[in-house]
């Protein structure tokens, strides 16, 4: 479990003082997959780096597994860090070491015995499908393979938490999916708490139970991924979600009733809309839409224009069918 209280971090530069984190409060429950999204410069990278005190806050408290990290002496902090794995956008593997020796590094630093290191590294390479690469150097691997090595290394000391700092941002879509599936599985198998920093919304949809949206050093919105993504409450979230969406839906028809419909779970795959249309005699045009899947449930988001008959009747029927309806105009 992770808890931040009033965490503030300032960076001084010739241009002046910049607040990278501005009184951030955050709680991540044990076993949760927690996403932090925001534009570059929003402070999400600084945030994840405060979780193992790579970045020491100027004010506030950082609690990890009931330990106040900022109150620890250097030796105790190093011990606490071993319980917090971390993976990086650019992997940060050592060129000078083979894959095997890269994975062994945290165990070597911890002063484990040769025998223990050998068996633990074997186990990790087996689990992550790296055995054939054991004697290679990082430069000989693809991005996805390197990130697997990064994950194996991060898991070496059996952490309870894994911090992922843009861990898939340097990977192509297929490899991203492969790494996300792996992280998802690790969360389920080991009960590992994951904190993912990303600017890719698809990553959050795919694996995160909860999400926090950051803007200008503050968390502006947080909650279950489906709630935040389907019913964004702030402009920051809306504009993040709007990125990468097609803009072909405009212009809108004049005078008609336009509504946003949200389907959750199995409702997504049922012919609700056409049934309501047929039964109420209210036609509809789909202006924009997206059908997809969060980690735990399917969802559909449609923007429709009603035409003919009484739109209110159709809206009432849709709500009765469990569809969330928001009238836009």
């Amino acid at each position: 479990m992770i808890r931040l209280e009033g965490v503030t971090r300032r960076f001084r530069s010739p241009a002046g003082v910049r607040l990278a984190l501005d009184g951030v409060d955050l709680t991540v429950a044990a076993g949760e997959v927690f996403g932090v999204v925001g534009r570059s410069g929003a402070g999400k990278s600084t945030l994840v780096r405060t979780l193992n005190l790579l970045e020491r806050p100027d004010a506030g408290r950082v609690w990890v597994d009931d330990q106040d990290l900022m109150g620890l002496n250097p030796a105790a902090l190093r011990a606490a860090r071993r319980r917090i794995g971390m993976i990086f956008q650019h992997f940060n593997l050592l060129h000078s070491r083979t894959i095997r020796d890269n994975i062994a590094l945290p165990l070597v630093l911890d002063g484990r015995s040769r025998v223990e290191i050998a068996s633990r590294v074997d186990e990790l390479m087996e689990r992550l499908g790296l055995i054939e690469h054991a004697r290679k150097h990082p430069a000989q691997l693809s991005g996805g393979q390197k990130q697997r090595v990064g994950i194996a290394r991060a898991l070496a000391c059996e952490p309870s938490i894994l911090l992922c700092d843009e861990a898939t941002s340097a990977l192509d879509p297929e490899t991203t999916e492969e790494i996300l599936a792996l992280l998802d599985q690790l969360n389920l198998d080991l009960g590992l708490t994951l904190v993912l920093i990303t600017h890719e919304m698809e990553v959050v949809r795919r694996v995160c139970d909860k999400v926090a949206v950051m803007e200008a050093g503050k968390i502006v919105e947080t909650g279950a991924t489906a709630d935040v993504f389907l019913k964004p409450q702030t402009q920051a979230t809306r504009s993040l979600l709007a990125e990468g969406e097609s803009r072909t839906a405009t212009p809108r028809p004049v005078g008609g009733t336009v509504a946003r419909l949200v389907f959750r779970g199995e409702r997504t795959f049922e012919p609700v809309l056409s049934r309501v249309s047929r039964e109420t005699g209210v036609d509809h045009a789909i202006l924009a839409g997206r059908i997809g899947r969060f980690r735990d449930q399917a969802y559909g988001q449609l923007e429709v224009a009603f035409a003919g008959g009484d739109p209110q009747v159709a809206i009432a029927r849709l709500r009765a069918e469990g569809v969330e309806v928001e009238v836009v105009s």
């Binding site: 193992n52 790579l54 190093r78 011990a79 606490a80 860090r81 071993r82 917090i84 971390m86 990086f88 940060n92 590094l105 945290p106 630093l109 911890d110 290394r153 000391c157 911090l163």
Partner: peptide, 8 residues
């Protein structure tokens, strides 16, 4: 940084 994060 990675090494610091490992407790080095």
């Amino acid at each position: 940084e990675a090494t610091q994060a490992m407790g080095g």
